[in-house]
Design a protein around this nucleic acid. Sequence first.
DNA 1: TTAGGGTTAG
Length: 980
Amino acid sequence: MWLHYGQPPGPPSATLAFLANLILSVMREEDGVLSQDLLQRWGNRLQSALRHIDPGIQDMPSNLVRVRWNGLFVASMALLGKLDDTMDGCSVLFHQDDPKHKSTLRGHILQVYTIVALSVFHYHGAAAVLDFLIEHPWVDKYFTAEPNSPALVPDIKRFARTVLPLLSGITDPVGHLQEARTIRSDRQLSAMGSILIRVAARTGRDPYPILEFLQRHKIFVPDEVVFMVIKELARANSFDLASQLLERYSPEVVTPKGERRPRPGFHATGLFLASRRGDVAAAEKYYSFLSKRSQADADDKASYMHAYAVASQASKAAKLFDEFFPAGDNPRSKHEHPNIVHYTTIIFAYAQVGDLESVNLWLGKLSHAGFRPDVHVYSIILQTLAQRGDIESMSSVLDQMRRSKVSLTAVPYTTLITILGKRQDPHGAERIYKRAIDEGVVPDREMVTSIMNAHVESGSWQGAIRAFDYLMTPGRPGAALTIEVFNTLMKAYVLIAAPFRIVAHLFRQLGKVNLRPDARTFALLIQSACDSGFMDISEDLYKEMERLATEDKQTSLKANVHVLTIIMRGYLLTGRRLKAKGVMDRMKALGVEPNAITYAHIMKAYAEQTTSEGAQVAENLLRSLMRDEKRPWLQLERGRRLALETVYRPLLNAYAKRELVYDVERIHREMMDAGGEPTLGTLTALLDAYRRTGNIEGVRSIWPEIRRLGHEYTRHNSLLTSGQSSGPSLSGLGIIMCIPLSIYVDALSVAGEHGEVALVWKMLKDEGLQFDSHNWNHLVVALVRAGEPHRAFDIVENVILRYQAQARAQYGRGRDMHPSSPLSLDLPPPEEGDLPTPRPEAPLHNAPRRAQLSERTTKRMRNMTSIEERGSQDFAHPLLMLQQLSPLWNTWRPHGATLTLLGQVLDHLRSGRLVQPVRPNADAAFEQAALDATEMKLRTEAAGIVLGGIYDAFPRTVQLIAEYEIMKRSSQRGMQQDSS
DNA sequence: TTAGGGTTAG
């Protein structure tokens, strides 16, 4: 008995085959954790097993048995780590590895190569595996399946699948090639480069820099490898670069005999590229070329349909499917059967246009054809539902995936992270990421970028910087500085209202890191120029973008609705309506369709005018939009319901601000009649209108609706994060719930409903709502109105100022430039004591406010010329500086109005009067009813005690009030001097 | 487990 794993089966040839398979399966099982001990053990076992087989076997006439025996002997040496012997052995084996030989024999040799590669990797690392491959040039040909040996295909694939991932350990392939250039021949460099390109493509890294290096040094790269790079670029949406590469090739080659032939792979690659960019005309051209020569295979058919899917022509894609695969087709005609990808493509096509009914229909067809929906299919469906904001259905799809044991990959997880980011729940997004990692998903760049974006969206700059630093750390899964990562960082700068100078400086660094700006980069830069009021600069930038798009053929820089909307809004904000109108004309001329957001900005500009004419213009525009039968502006990515809200809200908000309750109600009703639904935003406008007009009944009627929507919102977030609906918790709730709470508290306390304020506050606190700085400031005011000055001061001293100290401490916290995880969840929590976690700083999704802040930050930073230069290779450094300099960083502070009121309270107490609660139908907090002398005396004493208590317990707040008053007085004096 | 799905701008 020489093996624990059973008796050797029968004749030598079968025994040898058994051994090869056994060792491979052991090595694969041990996947990645091969121990030296295990390799040695199996090397020895294999040698003793080989000795047990007839020693004379090497002289046997049967080539097959002899080669098998020799091959396994080489494998045993590899297992024992004898590198030189192994390499010599491989060179001998090479002579048997000939296309003339039977595929069983060559399959066996491939198995030996696989064992050798795994062993070499273990003993000597990734670079040694690459050396093995290029020093035995016959081996690397197996990275392409030879069409003339179909029986060998499974072995070839297994070989490539096992060996290529080993090489991903070479983290800097271009550097590796650069070094190899001194010792390797061009032939070897060519092989090396081709293999490294394959590895990059397979592991999702950008293969282009490798190709670029090889071409720069005039090293031959086979067409097939270049075409692979083109496909990878197309997959990564780098269409311009992909086209440029393909354009260097002629569609034909000339054979040695002088015949002209189509260049193999050229048309299929062109088709793939055209399909990805949704260029149906080009796809049609390539496809018909292939089809006429009967060279259109299953992949080409899928590509061709994909073109129509991307172009949002779902029914055309489905029509092609029916043409390619007619129903009732003879099941035995092998080529004409659709595979799961063909079905998936049609499902994707209908998902693109939001046609869920057809998605379901084709899902049925897919199942009927005997396929089971896999993770790709589910991902497409999840993405569609995410776009429509249908969280309930997303949750049931996730359940269904769990039930059918389809495990999630980075792709559906990224969809979940993205939607939570957009819902301003970075904590939820991080929890999903963590769950993915726990389930063994390897994160990629898209997934981490999505985490970074979740932080940027909600103004959690520290979190954004941490994710960015992770992406900038070589060797971390997904780490790379690509244009999306750069854009996400740039968005942080725009949202924090960085001075244009800083954003422009960042933009100028792009070239240094070999990145090209895309339309989004320009949109952000132009946005920053607009925020800073530099409209002439933004026009220049727009012209530059257009020039690059036309002269430089960078089609990704074509003007679009985003950038034009940004410029138009820039003009509207500075009151240049004629210029704004000019931008609309430009859109029309370019055939760019304005969407709901474009129109919302126009309506906002008019509705906010103080005259009623302005509102009338806005109403007329709204009505004409709704009258339009086709309503092209309704096609917003985020779904129809949101588009309706977008165009109705400017009027709702403007009317609420002007206290026109009737008009707010009317517009709200019109929105509902048009098929819209009340949202937290629209209900908040109603609530505000009622508050401003002292309509407490109205306030009371709306509040429960707001609470219901708030709960639904967080329930949805928790459906996505935990997979099940947990109890009421508002912890994931964004700023959206904080605003109505402030309004509600204000309205209640003005109406003298102090008990109700306390009740609501406690209830929301218990439900886990993260109060923002405004909420606390409002609470202070409400406590004064409730006749509770001591408690009001307590909130400032022990909540607001403590949060302030905490925030400052956090900014001072050291930055980990190379975090091992992108998550802030993995950081130790800040010292909080008994304070609940506050909301991060208010995000700046509000352009006028941003413009204001950008002006102030610019002034503050006037004397700090070094902020950009100091960290020229560290793109996040200025952001770190800004979050401390920006007026935003001081979110946690008592507001001016709060300090003024508390100052009045102190004066009031000093004058011997108590702070009386506001009572219903009374309007002064400090009213003093007529009292007899004794009562007066008692009250004066009581006021003194309260005052003393406040001085004793809240010295910092008292001090702050004094400073604030001095500052106010001196600034008033300054203003008087200015005016005199 | 080749393919097909996601990431960044108003």
